[in-house]
Design a protein around this nucleic acid. Structure first.
Lengths: 344, 344
DNA sequence: TTGAAAGCGATACCAA
DNA sequence: TTGGTATCGCTTTCAA
């Protein structure tokens, strides 16, 4: 006789007993795997409804040598809108395929990422989506040993652990640098945040600096320590930058939110945009859609990036062959917060 | 003899065998539960490092009749910054107590929430944190039967399923309404988004309307269908509202992001703030920190709300007695986007 | 301090 | 179309 277990949860065995069939038959009905009569199906389903049975998927995964439907998703922070958009794209897409997101906020540190990876792996996830291409030695070891599908997103990686989805951040910074140089700017500034790990923003800055220096200009950097890349750091980062460098002609920001903060600072100080100073952002974030002047920026579809990352994960899980390197692309939005031609 | 299992994962049995002890001894060492010699501990740990053993927590939970360290967290959407702040507060706090967030984006619908609840419950979570106090009948049934700690957040619920953390949204809207009435405004507008479920924004609007009507004024509403409460809906919602009602003196928005969108629209049309029209937001979001004029708004600490929600969950899990109803509070930020006194 | 055996809830496999 | 039995990795219980 099947006995109720210690917890108050209804088990498959109880459903089966109540329906007068074996566990196996009940299991087959619940999975719709066939091999049972319509009469049996009805008996079982009636008891499922009656007892309010909810399957214990832990047991399923455990029994089957399979992995779960969880996908671990690591994101640096939620205060930076680019990442919330990516996450939304990932979770919606994963959800539509019956997968669940287990979130990990790494705060841009290898240490947090490593701890999170260790924990999430212990739950036998189906796969992992990680923001960034840089991981600690021990993380890499765990990831390789896991044998799981790993999608690294954000900064395109030509030789990823498994699959990479993103854009080339260096190139996007380079393109912005070249564009500003082409407009005659030579004395440039950069405002961003500063983190422990080499990240995509750093790659953008490197690309930007390269293009500017190639064009005979220079970049003065202002990195705000340990802050989220949002409006206020853009505001006070600009204040700090301009207090030490009065002669800057144009400032490039880590993202549009920071650029907006900078724009507000400059406006508050009575500077005209772009006559007195140029402003360029990155990401083409929602705020750009309501500004009076079109913000000069780099357009990236963050939501799509997340969706593609999730699709590649699903592809890997279904055993399809998946491209190693998936470039989402970007393009420059000229805008009107920088001057439109070389001054005479 | 312990044999390697079919998967490539290293099991506790293999570690034990390699160390020349029993599974139980290895298990005790790994849990640090005592009852073993230092020599044994070293032998076991040496093999753990050597083999790269990662515990299978599924098996732990499964064996122990316990629940996992997962906490299911449902949030309507990530496009609305108030929710990303709440989520960040929750995840950081949960993480610091060794719990993991399983994310659910419900898109403000009962149906999505119900499906997500069903799935997440099948993973034997430790508890659930749900945004909103309104759930489908079947959701309520599942939640009650689960016997799990449930923290309902956002809209304070005097008789929650289990624990409620949030603020009284009706009151916050009411306070804003009364404030604007006190400044002499009578012809008011509201711009927000529209969703299937009765939600907190609706409660704010109700409170606002009540206060305004009590004060002899009226509210003209503009609800944008199925849009995220961000900048652009604020912009075009204002356009729509003003196209049908030219005589409005002041507009209250669902949140600060939408208010900023509205502010941009009005400015673009050459209207002066607050001389020609007043603007009031809600939430005191990061963007308010960089605006030239202080935005009239309702301050709520969303991050703290999330942290408190997570703390209450931890409290429930540790068996502490937890207050049923936890009011985070709010306060009105006067700002300068509405006029400062009654016109003569 | 250590170990052997039972059992958690589901599924795979084989037998009826 | 059904059902019995072994099994997954770990912990609990009881014995040595």
């Amino acid at each position: 006789m099947e006995k109720p277990n210690k917890s108050n949860k209804v088990s498959l065995a109880e459903v089966a007993q109540a329906a007068g069939v074996s566990k196996m038959t009940a299991s087959r009905v619940l999975r719709g795997s066939g091999g049972y009569s319509e009469k049996t199906r009805k008996k079982v389903m009636a008891q499922v409804d009656l007892l309010g049975y909810l399957p214990n998927r832990l047991a399923t995964v455990f029994s089957g040598e399979k992995n779960s439907t969880f996908v671990g998703v690591s994101i640096p922070e939620l205060g930076n809108e680019v990442f919330t958009q990516v996450l939304e794209g990932i979770d919606r897409k994963l959800g539509s395929f019956g997968h669940q997101t287990v979130l990990g906020l790494t705060q841009h540190t290898h240490e947090e990422e490593e701890n999170w990876i260790r924990t999430v792996l212990s739950w036998q996830p189906a796969g992992l989506i990680l923001t960034g291409r840089s991981h600690s030695i021990r993380s890499l070891e765990m990831l390789r040993n896991s044998g799981l599908p790993i999608v690294e997103i954000w900064d395109l990686n030509s030789s990823p652990l498994d699959v990479s989805v993103g854009i080339n951040h260096f190139d996007s910074g380079f393109e912005m640098g070249r564009y500003l140089i082409s407009l005659g700017y030579r004395s440039l500034g950069y405002v961003g945040t500063s983190h422990d790990t080499a990240n995509a923003a750093t790659a953008r800055l490197d690309g930007f600096t390269k293009a500017v220096e190639d064009g005979g200009g220079s970049v003065r950097r202002q990195l705000c320590l340990h802050d989220t890349a949002s409006f206020y750091p853009g505001f006070y980062g600009t204040e700090q930058l301009l207090s030490t460098s009065q002669d800057l002609e144009c400032v490039f920001y880590q993202n549009d939110s920071m650029a907006f903060g900078g724009l507000q600072f400059c406006t508050a100080r009575g500077m005209r945009i772009p006559e007195d100073i140029g402003i360029a952002g990155w990401g083409d974030l929602p705020i750009a859609s309501v500004l009076h002047k079109r913000l000069t920026s780099i357009h990236v579809s963050h939501l799509k990036l997340g969706q593609v990352a999730a699709e590649k994960m699903i592809g890997r899980l279904s055993g399809e062959s998946v491209a190693t390197c998936n470039d989402i692309g970007f393009h420059l939005m000229p805008g009107s917060t920088v001057r439109s031609n070389i001054p005479v």
